[in-house]
């Protein structure tokens, strides 16, 4: 049943990654504000829709590379 040891190791590594992610999230202030993110997503709609790319104002080109 040696594979179970491998799986437990992988499981712990994955859980460890998750733990690091969690610690990072807390330390970097992700969870300082537990209210406004839920409201903000309701107001994030784009300003206009179009079939043309706004070349002048668009940062898309540089973003795309």
């Amino acid at each position: 049943m040696s594979v179970i040891i491998l799986l437990v190791i992988i499981g712990i590594v994955v859980a460890g990654l998750f733990l690091l992610g969690f610690i990072w999230a807390v330390k970097s202030g992700q969870y300082d504000d537990m209210y406004s993110p839920s409201v903000r997503i309701l107001f994030d709609d784009a300003t206009e829709s179009t079939n043309e790319v706004d070349e002048k104002n668009s940062s898309t080109k540089s973003e795309i590379k």
Binding site: W24, S28, E48, S49, T50, D54, N57
Partner: peptide
């Protein structure tokens, strides 16, 4: 309808990380 391929939006840039921030940042 007709497909609107692009949507323009605007936002403030993300504040630059301060020098003493952690490795991930």
């Amino acid at each position: 309808g007709s497909f609107m391929r692009f949507e323009n939006d605007e936002a403030a840039p993300k504040p630059a990380p301060s020098p003493k921030e952690s490795g991930h940042r």
